[in-house]
């Protein structure tokens, strides 16, 4: 099923030039990560009042914790299980460079969904926007032949779980977070 979906979608490569260019942009290593990072940066400063801003800053801390956790989980999973990329085992039109790491789970989806989940917990629309661009980018990677759909699903689950874990940890270490933010506030960085 996984291979069938990749082959089916990959058949479209080179048929629609505009779609190819759009997918190249969306699945780039830079567009979604930079957008997520800029949203986090904006959230750090955003808030009409101090109390709102502090909640946003805690959201950024959760997202950062989620990114750290998802990277750790993916490193562990990669050490246990290596899955070859679709273009290595199927005959496909590759629209991307040749990645050498394990196909499962998708790093791109993992990090994107980790940030989207953390942001979604406080800002529903913004979180959905980040989730949507991650989903389109991840879909682009299936279209391009560098991921199976199950890699994306795995990455999304690992990413969302990592951020939920970071959210619960943030509740447990709320006092430490408050101290950190209070110190940063003293020098006007929070």
């Amino acid at each position: 099923m996984d291979s069938w979906i990749v082959k089916f979608l990959n058949n479209g490569v080179d048929s629609f030039k505009i779609l190819d260019e759009f997918m190249k942009l969306m699945m780039s290593d830079y567009l979604v990560p930079v957008t997520c990072s800029l949203v986090m940066l904006g959230l750090w400063f955003h808030g009409p009042k101090h109390a709102h801003r502090e909640l946003n800053q805690i959201t950024v801390c959760i997202a950062a914790g989620g990114i750290g956790t998802v990277n750790l989980l993916i490193a562990i999973l990669n050490a246990i299980y290596f899955r070859p990329r679709p273009f290595e085992v199927l005959e496909l039109n590759l629209l991307f460079y040749y990645p050498t790491d394990s196909s499962f789970p998708s790093n791109f989806a993992g990090v994107g969904f980790a940030v989207a989940t953390a942001v979604f917990l406080r800002h529903k629309k913004l979180g959905m926007f980040l989730g949507l661009i991650t989903l389109v980018g991840a879909g682009g990677r299936v279209y391009a032949g560098v991921h199976y759909p199950s890699d994306i699903l795995g990455g999304a689950i690992v990413g969302a779980t990592a951020s939920l874990f970071a959210y619960f940890v943030s509740k447990k270490i709320a006092v430490i977070l408050q101290i950190f933010l209070k110190l940063a506030r003293k020098i006007h960085f929070a």
Binding site: D29, P33, Y97, Y98, P99
Partner: peptide, 14 residues
Amino acid sequence: NIPDTGPGLEANTQ
């Protein structure tokens, strides 16, 4: 869209 192991930026460097 260039390899992150070559002239591109891998995640940590990014």
